[in-house]
Simulated assay, not measured.
Amino acid sequence: MAPSTQKAVVVQADGSVVITSVPVPKPGPGQILVKVAAVAQNPVDFKTIAWVKKEGAIVGCDYAGTVEEIGPDVPAGLRTVGERVAGFVFGSYYKNGSCAQYVLAEAAPTVHLPDSWSFEDGSQLGVGPFTAAQLLWEAQQLPTPIQPATTPFPLLISGGASSVGQYAIQFAKLSGLQVFATASPKHFDLVKSLGADEVFDYHDPEVAKKIKAATGGKLKHAVDAISETGTPAIVAAALSDEGGVISATLPYPETRAGVTAIPICAYNMLGKSYDFPFQWEATEEAKALGKRFAEHISKVISLNRLKPNPKVVYPSGLASVQQGLLDGPKISGQKIIFRIADTPDL
Rank of each mutant, 00 (worst) to 15 (best):
G65R: 09
G65F: 04
T66E: 15
T66Y: 05
P72Y: 04
P72I: 05
D73Q: 14
D73Y: 06
V74Q: 10
P75Q: 13
G77I: 09
L78Y: 11
L78Q: 13
R79I: 13
R79Q: 14
T80D: 14
V81H: 09
G82N: 12
G82V: 13
E83N: 07
E83Y: 09
R84A: 14
R84T: 08
R84K: 13
R84F: 08
V85M: 09
A86Y: 05
A86V: 08
F88I: 06
F88M: 15
V89D: 02
F90A: 13
F90S: 14
G91W: 00
G91C: 14
G91Y: 00
G91F: 04
G91P: 02
S92Q: 07
S92G: 15
Y93S: 14
Y93A: 14
Y93V: 15
Y94R: 08
Y94V: 15
N96Y: 00
N96R: 13
G97M: 07
S98C: 14
S98Q: 09
S98E: 11
A100I: 05
Q101M: 14
L104H: 02
L104W: 06
L104F: 08
A105M: 15
A105E: 12
E106Q: 15
E106I: 10
A107F: 06
A107E: 14
A107H: 10
A108T: 09
P109M: 12
T110R: 05
T110N: 13
H112W: 05
H112E: 11
H112D: 09
L113A: 08
D115A: 15
S118I: 05
F119K: 06
D121W: 02
G122N: 10
Q124A: 15
V127P: 06
V127F: 08
G128M: 07
G128D: 03
G128A: 15
G128F: 06
P129K: 11
T131Y: 07
T131R: 04
A132H: 03
A133I: 02
Q134E: 14
L135M: 13
L136K: 01
L136Q: 02
W137Q: 05
W137P: 01
E138A: 12
A139V: 04
A139R: 07
A139P: 13
Q141T: 04
Q141E: 05
L142F: 01
T144K: 11
T144W: 00
T144A: 07
P145R: 04
P145N: 08
P148S: 08
P148T: 01
P148I: 00
A149H: 02
T150S: 15
T150G: 08
T151C: 10
P152C: 10
P152G: 11
F153Y: 13
F153A: 10
I157N: 05
I157H: 04
S158L: 11
G159C: 10
G159E: 02
G159Y: 06
A161Q: 06
A161G: 11
A161S: 15
S163V: 07
S163D: 05
V164M: 10
V164C: 07
V164R: 06
G165L: 12
Q166P: 02
Q166S: 13
Q166V: 04
Y167N: 07
A168V: 03
A168T: 08
A168L: 10
A168K: 09
A168Y: 01
I169A: 11
Q170E: 05
F171I: 03
F171W: 04
A172K: 05
A172C: 06
K173H: 04
K173M: 06
K173F: 00
